[in-house]
Nucleic acid binder design. Sequence first.
DNA 1: CTGAAAGCGCTTACAG
DNA 2: CTGAAAGCGCTTACAG
Lengths: 355, 355
Amino acid sequence: MPNDEPSAAASPEAPEAATPARRMRGGPKGLRITDVAALAGVAPITVSRVFNSPETVAPETLERVRQVVQKLGYVPNRLAGGLSSSRSRLIAAIVPTIAHSLFSETVQVFSETMSRAGYQVLLALSGYSDSNEETLLDAVLSRRPEGVLLTGVAHTESLRERLRNVGMPIVETWDMTATPIDMLVGFSHHQIGAAVAEHFLRRNVRAPGLVSANDDRALARRDGFRERLAQAGIREIAEVLVAPPSSVAVGKAALSTLIEQAPDLDAVFCGSDLLAIGVLGAAKRMGLAVPSQLAICGFGDLEFATETTPQLTTVRVDGTRIGLSAARCLLDRLAGIDKARVTDVGFHLVERETG
Amino acid sequence: MPNDEPSAAASPEAPEAATPARRMRGGPKGLRITDVAALAGVAPITVSRVFNSPETVAPETLERVRQVVQKLGYVPNRLAGGLSSSRSRLIAAIVPTIAHSLFSETVQVFSETMSRAGYQVLLALSGYSDSNEETLLDAVLSRRPEGVLLTGVAHTESLRERLRNVGMPIVETWDMTATPIDMLVGFSHHQIGAAVAEHFLRRNVRAPGLVSANDDRALARRDGFRERLAQAGIREIAEVLVAPPSSVAVGKAALSTLIEQAPDLDAVFCGSDLLAIGVLGAAKRMGLAVPSQLAICGFGDLEFATETTPQLTTVRVDGTRIGLSAARCLLDRLAGIDKARVTDVGFHLVERETG
DNA sequence: CTGAAAGCGCTTACAG
DNA sequence: CTGAAAGCGCTTACAG
């Protein structure tokens, strides 16, 4: 039974019988370090050392304190510990979403790595709107994390300024910029767009279209796509921008809209693999051969896509590597090691059947 | 420029010239509530009220304090606030993984809902092993969350006992039990297994097999599957258990192993849709017609599966609803509203082409 | 509507 | 290797 209250008698410095004039702040709130200390016959600071620097405690003392901890079921209060030491042992991860997306891989690996290093992860979902990004950041910073993972680089300048000033390690991810706030692990969406354009051009595409979400990174891909096509003299590009989250159904609906814009449409660059699958489905229903009559390129390389839709080309990005690399950046910095500021993990165009 | 230090002169109670005999604990650590209070000409408690109960502050005072907060860029320290008030405003979510899984939907919606209610989510990934579940729980409890979402119900009795004793709202999810720790939102894996067995029996399957991960919930599905088949006189069931994470490749490899065990294999129940896609791919390669020669049932209903693999049957579970419902359970409890202890969200067998 | 004092449960910075 | 005192930055519980 680990729930016996430490009796007043066990406390050597117990004063008179009555409790002193101490205003109660709520009832008893669970075990404190002093409870463990009293039972183990040591000072609170020694119990603290058992948790935070056991190598500085004598073996017998260590053992005795640990037994008491075990018996009582004591769990240190890290709110108090963090406040006192200015080490929250918390890392924040701010991502748009973790549902149906490669971000979930990044967060997964990031979290595992941080966890192994003794940190815990505060998850903050920003959605795709950055209207309330300031509010979200305030909420995150109020926890005093020791580091922050951000998704993307498109923040307002006031935000970037604030983040630079908080003086904690920050990794931006999933994008590329010459002027990161601090560190960056990502790739160029603009380059991806250009690479897909080139892929289409190699296939002698004449009337390419695009369907994607209208977030910053998707738009950067679009711009790269358009620019490369413009170099080849193709300037008329059918385009459907949709609000996130994208889905198979949205992709399906998009194809007819694109064809209305460009009746001779012969290629579609999709903002995600789900959209690509939708476009593929609609193409089949219309009797269009893929990729010979209609080339389709997705983005993200969900594993299933590789397997079930060999007609699709897609752009593979290694979300796992981003998460791992971002975690290492932060951990190195926290360990006082200086780190390369920008890491480009690149991307890979996965071509399938050529039809 | 929000980085001017509040001058000592602005502080009315500034004592002598020299700082008193106060041991420094680290350098200056950023803005404190007293900095805002001094500049706004109010007591710290008033600044506190501006954040925590603005309706109790006079409009002009409110405005003045907010201006100072804005100007200084002050962000309250919630480690301190949480310690002082015993309200951490933190909720923990403990899930096996968020990569490639329906859990990510649950966490997504759970997190969004909690966020809207003013809580932040601490993400703890347990993996599929529960060897270190105690350690993980200690780490979580050390943050003094106000509620916990757990995945599954298969915890050691000592763990269940500890959780019951911490006295905070707890929701178990993604499983079903008659004796939850506190609240539960889930469904019966055993029933799912039985339902899939019945589906196969309706198709006059004779030699069903199973490939799945060997975690608790997958094994519960297996047991339901076997029991229902046993009732129909089918007791020989080819079985491949694999370590998580499951993947398309693992599914592919599994089919030949199953066929070695049962050469006349005519149905496979897969522990996930990725496995099912792998089995489907392998079946095609072997020239087996799906589902006429080999019926395949997955689990999870990833959106793509519905679209790209109409030959597959799958079991749909609403991870989104679980997340939302779990969040509401916790929020209601935190608001003092008593809540139904167990919610069965059920599942849905999605049959496709009968081929 | 506002504030002075005390306390939340730890750890730092010394000191021995 | 161990400990007494002070402090981390807030909020509670009063009091006015």
